[in-house]
């Protein structure tokens, strides 16, 4: 399996009055690695939700490998979702289940309900061995049979990564994967994700709060602010003013923030 291309074509999303993203045009090649940066509320998460077909655009088109997502039937949509893996800031594991069960459950999109129950509770040796192998690539294969809530936060994060890799996706979306991890570990996690995606030729789109990490690990940064694309370039071409502008507050926003306090 290799990566898929992503195409946003004049995409706008509105949540009632507020704007998620406004008129975004973006093209991401198969196997490319892109970091989305920008202040919170700038539309990073919305873009990722669009790419995962969790959210429909109010206006415009999202195409994956040339297919318009709005044209998919519900069944095709489910199949499409099974080719997109997402890593969440809050991990979204089932802490009550064991590690291999959490990993195995992610193939639900390609299994019947009963087939999945079998994978979870009466797994074949082959499928567990496969999960063991993936866990090994993130360094926690020893925890294969542990209850997930007995793992440390960092270990659980690795379970989430292993889970997304086990899904064998064409696109890997990561929504602020390291914002609740300490800085030293954050770098390892980002590197792990980038390497894993590169090795498997998966398209990787990661939203990041930490600019330094984004600059060090990605060759393409997309800066978002208020739902609009401010820049889209190689970090070496970007001046420090571009970043300052991305995060600086307008006068209006400063008043708004003051009112909040």
């Amino acid at each position: 399996m290799s990566g898929a291309s992503l195409e946003f074509d004049g995409v706008t999303v509105r949540y009632g009055e507020t704007i998620g993203v406004a008129d975004v045009d973006l093209r991401i090649d198969p196997g490319a690695q892109v970091a989305l940066v920008g202040p919170s509320g700038s539309g990073k998460t919305t873009l990722l939700r669009l790419a995962g077909a969790i959210r429909e655009p109010t206006k415009g088109r999202v195409r994956v490998d040339g297919t318009d997502l709005s044209q998919l039937s519900p069944k095709e949509l489910r199949r499409f979702r099974s080719t997109v893996a997402t890593i969440y800031q809050d991990l979204r594991l089932v802490p009550e289940l064991r590690v291999y069960q959490n990993v195995a459950a992610v193939r639900a999109g390609r299994r019947s309900f009963l087939g999945l129950l079998r994978d979870l509770f009466l797994p074949s040796g082959g499928s567990v061995a496969q999960i063991h192998e993936i866990l090994e690539s993130v360094g926690i294969e020893e925890k294969l049979y542990h209850r997930t809530n007995q793992l440390s936060g960092g270990q659980q994060q690795r379970v989430a990564i292993a889970r997304s890799l086990y899904q064998e996706p064409a696109v890997l979306l990561a929504d602020e994967p390291v914002s609740s991890v300490d800085p030293a570990r954050a770098r390892d996690v980002v590197r792990l994700l980038c390497d894993a995606a590169r090795e498997r030729e998966i398209t990787l789109v990661m939203s990041l709060h930490n600019l330094e990490l984004a600059r060090d690990h990605f060759s393409r940064l997309v800066g978002l602010r208020n739902g609009r694309v401010m820049f889209d370039d190689d970090p070496s071409n970007l001046s420090s003013e571009a970043f300052t502008r991305l995060y600086s507050l307008t006068e209006e926003e400063m008043i708004e923030q003051g009112a909040h306090r």
Binding site: G52, I54, R78, R79, Y88, R92, A105, A108, R110, F113
Partner: peptide, 19 residues
């Protein structure tokens, strides 16, 4: 959260609720 994540991975309703 976990249910939403499964749904985003293409799981059907029964799986989302049961797992």
């Amino acid at each position: 959260g976990a249910g939403l994540a499964l749904r985003a991975a293409g799981a059907g309703e029964a799986t989302v609720l049961a797992i």
